[in-house]
């Protein structure tokens, strides 16, 4: 029943399921040994520019980047 007990914790912490799954995946990836570690590293990197809109006006653009892509 550990999963049933654990699930509400990350959700009450404000995590979405995807964020939780992604964090778990990053953990597993970082536990891998070479050469697998560098092979799967590409699945982790991302970068995009996010702009929020408020009633038709653009807000400031924020760059979201994974740690792997920032280096």
């Amino acid at each position: 029943m550990s999963t049933a007990a654990a699930a509400p914790f990350w959700r009450t912490a404000g995590f979405t399921y995807l964020r939780y799954a992604n964090t778990c995946a990053t953990m597993v990836r970082s536990c891998l040994k070479e050469p697998y570690k560098s092979q799967v590293a590409a699945r982790e990197g991302y970068s995009y520019k996010l702009v929020k809109w408020d009633n038709g006006t653009q807000q400031k653009a924020v760059v979201h980047e994974s740690e792997a892509a920032a280096h």
Partner: peptide, 16 residues
Amino acid sequence: AVDYSRVGINFSLVCE
């Protein structure tokens, strides 16, 4: 969201 394809498209990006 713009400039998303620069590093690559993967599941982590979509989750984010």
